Structures are given as structure tokens and as C-alpha cells.
Simulated assay, not measured.
Amino acid sequence: MHEIQLTNKSADAPVRVFEKALKDSHKLGIIRLNKPASLNALSLQMVELMSQQLQVWKDDEAIVAVWLEGEGERAFCAGGNVVEVYESVVAAERPDPAVVEDYFKKEYALDFCLHTYPKPVICWGQGIVMGGGMGLFMAADVRVVTETSRLAMPEITIGLFPDVGASYFLNQIDVTWARFIALTGCHLSCSDAMALGMANVLVSQESKKALLESLDKVHWDGRDKERSLVSLKQLISPLSQRLSSLNHVDNHVKEHTSEIAPLMVGSIEEIDQKIRQWKPETAWLKKAKQSFLSGSALSAHIILRQLEVHRQSSLHQVFDSELNLITALCHKGDFAEGVRALLVDKDKSPTWRFSSVTSVNLEDVEQFLPFN
């Protein structure tokens, strides 16, 4: 296989683009998020650059697949750059709602583009994969995790809800875990991701080169994505089996489903009451409980309702709903206070609009998420 050919020469570019030669004049398009200092958090500029490149490759017959990765070993992508959004919300002058809507509209359009891309998309999900990073990862056809992967949707901690298509992809997994992931922001291991079907390839982080090399043996069909995926998965499968037993990686899904399942049944008020009475014994479960109890009560209501409403919704319906909901929450919900407390002042002491789940009324939720 030929060496990677650099098409974006600036080492400082927030997104770097490569084309890797494959056999039969085919090429692999590689997009690398290049902001390792911020764990590759997605800025609006990064979203725009990725979208533009994907459009170019869509019409390039030589490009047969796309590979997404992040610079550095710590993270693929730790989420969207919500501080950038926060600054537009709390601007000294009159805040411009269009700024917030523009960011999320373009981010969701990128996610939708990846979900529906006419060529196979492979995502190397090493390290932290959270929030906006999950939006990219879950949109890929081949979702690769390693022993270092940590997946999460922690939006309740900043007064939001799992977005970037989560109203769709969380509804594709077991309802117990969909609710638990969304309400607690818990971190999932590579084993958890595989058990839940959120990832479909598990390899050692040292296997990246071998995985890339194996792509030259795929029978690529530029006109038939599904045929390419069949060949691709057949070649990747033997690599994935090497880590089938990871004794040093936690498998929370296997260990805790029976304990968590009863907690996630019922209304948000019933779930809240059960979690408050719950006495978890492991550090991981204790952290999940604390994240729920210290998160936004308004978000807890909205999270459960949003998942219920979109149990059977299409991707298109989900992204339309999420855009309307997140724009409203950024301006009228707990978002600004959540980001201030967690990411700006970092005092971790947000003053939420509501002190508890039971103090949130139906009307409070309905102004963001109508029940009709």
C-alpha cells in the first residue's frame, strides 16, 4: 500500500485531510480532528471543514471509503465546543439566537451526512468519545473501539439532553441502558460499547496500522456500498477477535444490568425516587448516581420524554426535533448555568432552575417539548 498523501499541508489546521492509495486506483479518504489540547472538541470551523470535505469526496469516484480519527491518543472527540456556544448566549450585547442555531444546525447536518453517506464510513474511536464525538462515531458504518475507549453522553451535567442523533441511536439499544446512559452520563468501556451494539469492532490500539493495511485487501465496489461493507467486515473480523476476552477492561453491562434495570422503570419522578434510595456499592455506580442527582432536574424530565417521543422516529425527524429543543434550552433552559459551572468558572456548583425533579411541573417541560 502506498504511503499517505497529505492534501492539507498545514500541521496546525483544526482538521487535517489525507488520501491513502489503495489497490485498483482506489483511495481512502482520512479526516483527522486536530485539536488534541482540547481533546478534539468540535468547533464550528471544524464542523464546516469536515462537511466541505465530505461533499468533495462524495463526488470523487476514486474515494471508496472515509476514515475518521482524532489527533493524539487521549481522545477521538470529547464533544462539541459548547463554550463557543455559551459565549454567544451570554454575550454582553443582545444575544443572537441565530448563532446558536447555526452551530447546531451545521453539526447535525454533518452527523446526518455521515449517517446517510453513500460510501462506507469507518471511525477509529480510541480514547474519549463523548457528546458531539458520539454523534460522529455513531453515524459511522464501522465503529471501532480499543481498550482505551470511553464513550458517554454527559449532557445532563450541563443542562442539555443527549442530542447529535442520540434520540435515534439510543433508541436502538436496550431501553434500560438507553435511559441510564442518558440520565447519568456514565462512561462506557469498549466491552460495554460492544455488548450494547454501539461499537461493532474491538481491536487493540496497537492494531491501528494493521487495520489500515487490511483495507487494501477489501473488494471495494464504488457503486454498491453494501457489497463493500460485507467485504470490509469480513476482513476486519479476525482482527476484532484478538481482544474477545479483555480481563482488565470493565464490563458494566454484564455486571450491573440486573441491578440497574429496576431503577429505570417508570416515570422520571419514580426513577428519581428509586435512585435516591439506591445504595450502589461500586465506584462506577456511585459516580453514575451522583451525576444524576447533581444534574439538571429539567434536563432529566426532558431526556426521558425525548427518548419516549422518538422511539419510532426516523433520523430526519430526530434531528429536526433536537434542533428545536436544543436551541430553546440554550436560551431558556439550564445550559448557560451548566456550562458556566462545569467548563467556565469550573466551580461545579450550578444553580439549576429547579432544585429537584419533583419541583418541575408539566408546564415547565411543555414549553420546551410540547406534549401534543
Rank of each mutant, 00 (worst) to 15 (best):
F18V: 08
R223H: 14
V265I: 14
K289S: 01
I4A: 15
E73Q: 12
K225C: 09
D347M: 01
I260L: 05
G131H: 00
F354A: 02
D216L: 05
A11Q: 15
V344S: 04
A62D: 09
N247Y: 14
L235C: 02
D345S: 13
T176R: 03
R32A: 14
G333A: 04
G127A: 03
G135M: 02
V66L: 02
E87H: 06
F104S: 06
H248A: 15
T257Y: 05
D60Y: 06
G295I: 08
V56Y: 14
A21F: 14
Q306S: 14
M134A: 14
F368T: 00
S356N: 00
A283D: 14
K233D: 01
M134H: 00
T148F: 08
V309Y: 12
Q241L: 13
L212T: 02
L49Q: 09
F335V: 06
V230W: 07
V164P: 04
L298H: 08
V175E: 11
T184G: 03
H2L: 15
E259L: 13
K332N: 13
D250F: 05
V145C: 05
L28I: 08
L68M: 05
S296H: 12
H248N: 10
F18M: 15
A41W: 03
L246G: 05
E107D: 06
D224V: 07
K27P: 07
D334H: 05
Y108Q: 06
K23C: 11
Y168A: 03
H310N: 14
A109I: 09
